[in-house]
Write a protein that binds this DNA or RNA. Structure first.
Lengths: 197, 197
DNA sequence: TTTTGTAAGTAAGTATCACTTACCTTGTGA
DNA sequence: TCACAAGGTAAGTGATACTTACTTACAAAA
């Protein structure tokens, strides 16, 4: 008997909530299915009614967070006119989401990348969509002359994504505080204006 | 009976070699201790004579690679005079090492970050040293007027490290080819000169 | 030469883990 | 009213990381 996603039964919600709570405290691998079940007041077997395996549970939880994130980003972009402003909004919003939602950033930046199965998941589909949005803005920026025309759009995207992600690592791993405003404007300034005198 | 690190017995070498070989083929978690032992022609128990646990084996292998890497970087830097050139050498050398040594980059960028134990390991000590080297160069660059004096050195370091790491992710995860020269000069150009027209 | 201590290595476990199987229960529409 | 599917349970099972208690090899002290 498999879950077909038409309804969202209480057991499924309990499992995801329990797992999320545990993920805030420790890393994925040190969470056991027994713990998830006990904490969520369901039996261990039920986990496997709704999720293919433990990793699938991780990917589905991540997917829900990513959908919210993508909606927020797209809405905010629509208010900006220039490409640079749009990219700045993406940098700011990404930092904000990662910083406010430790669970989301932990899953996305630390836990999922190690296993090949992730790259077939719906959550990875969301990552691709997010990355595609950034690429489109960069390409438009080059076309419209806002960005230098010898810019490699794929490489610029990598620099932007890398900067965002690395900026959050300290926060995620060591729980350091991160000033979103300062970091966001700092990254934008470096990438758009350069650091050479 | 614990290993005190004074000698390097054949069993220890066999285990590290066997593990390294397996890590080239698959991810850390899907490698079993039984496999490591069989492949290295030792018994499973011996692994735990030389390594605290499976993760400790990973950290020790990574540490050896990182020591080589750090030596290379430091040697190359010494030939450069300006700070920008030194940073360019670091970007190039890091990309080169990550691209040439898939095992090294896989361990460092994907596998170790998830568990807190890594941050107490000798390998993490090497990461800190590498990061410290970069920071020193940036600070010198600001002092000497090569870099803008309103640059946040910590943030610039994050952007550089993030760019390097993210640029290699596609290669590590999907096995994509990466042009080191092109990527290296591209990243340097973006960060030092900016992309805005 | 003998003794002794220790490092190198082995063999046979064990507890725990992710995951499976077979089953029960409940609500609903034909 | 009864068939049937979805929601949920209980009791497994094989594999896995790690442990324990042991043997062997060998160098230096006595």
């Amino acid at each position: 008997m498999k879950h077909r996603g038409k309804t969202n039964p209480p057991g499924r919600i309990k499992i995801m909530k329990s797992f999320s709570k545990l993920m805030e405290e420790k890393d994925f691998h040190s969470i056991t299915t027994a713990e998830i079940a006990k904490n969520g007041e369901v039996t261990e077997g039920l986990i496997y009614k709704y999720f293919k395996d433990k990793k699938d549970l991780l990917y589905q939880v991540l997917n829900e967070h990513f959908m919210e994130f993508q909606t927020k980003i797209e809405s905010r972009i629509s208010y900006e006119t220039t490409c640079v402003e749009q990219l700045e909004v993406i940098i700011f919003s990404s930092l904000e989401s990662y910083a406010e939602n430790r669970l989301f950033s932990k899953m996305l930046l630390l836990e999922v990348r190690t296993s090949p199965a992730f790259f077939n998941s719906a959550a990875y589909g969301m990552v691709k969509k997010y990355a595609a949005t950034i690429l489109e803005i960069i390409q438009k920026g080059i076309e419209q002359g806002e960005l230098k025309d010898d810019t490699d759009p794929y490489l610029l995207r990598k620099v932007i994504l890398g900067a965002i992600e690395h900026a959050c690592l300290g926060e995620i791993i060591f729980g350091r505080e991160l000033s979103i405003d300062q970091t966001s404007t700092g990254i934008s300034d470096i990438i758009f204006n350069g650091v050479r005198t």
